[in-house]
Computed example of a mutant assay.
Amino acid sequence: MDRSLTYPEILTQVLRKASDAQPRLQTIQIRAVCDTESGQFLIIATGWEKSVWLNTILFHARLFDGKVVIEDDNFEEGMTEALIKAGIAAEDIVTGLSQEQRQLTLHR
């Protein structure tokens, strides 16, 4: 684990690796979308599944007050362990925000 990397760099690397590792089913494309300026990091799936257009967020994390807030994680194994192994401190990963914490994040 490279401690010289910043959280945005780690998130970008882990999400790109995870999206590249996903099987390519039919014409669905899985892509990492990493915006270090806004602190938003996503993995999206788009494409045709039979006759239905699919546009789904598989994973969404954002940076907030030095923490990685996982908003949505639809991976079977979850992404938290991969983020920790890559160098994000476990105590800096926030999941399942309480109602009080959610209110605090609305104003920033």
Rank of each mutant, 00 (worst) to 15 (best):
T6G: 11
I88E: 12
R62G: 05
T36I: 03
C34H: 08
A86M: 11
K85A: 15
V33R: 01
E77V: 05
I10D: 13
A18C: 05
I28Q: 09
L106E: 14
K17C: 03
N74K: 05
T95N: 08
Q29S: 15
E49W: 12
E49N: 12
A18R: 04
K67Q: 13
D92P: 00
E91V: 12
A21F: 07
T95W: 04
E9D: 15
G87E: 10
L25Q: 14
Q101M: 02
G87N: 06
E37V: 13
G39N: 05
M79F: 09
C34Y: 11
V33G: 02
V14N: 06
I28T: 13
S51Y: 12
D92Q: 12
L63A: 09
I30S: 06
L11P: 07
E91P: 00
T12R: 06
S98H: 04
R24P: 00
H107C: 07
V94W: 14
R62W: 03
I70W: 05
E9V: 07
G66T: 12
E91Y: 07
W53E: 08
P23K: 02
C34Q: 06
V94Y: 11
Q101A: 06
V69I: 14
T27I: 00
D92W: 02
G78P: 11
E71T: 14
S38R: 02
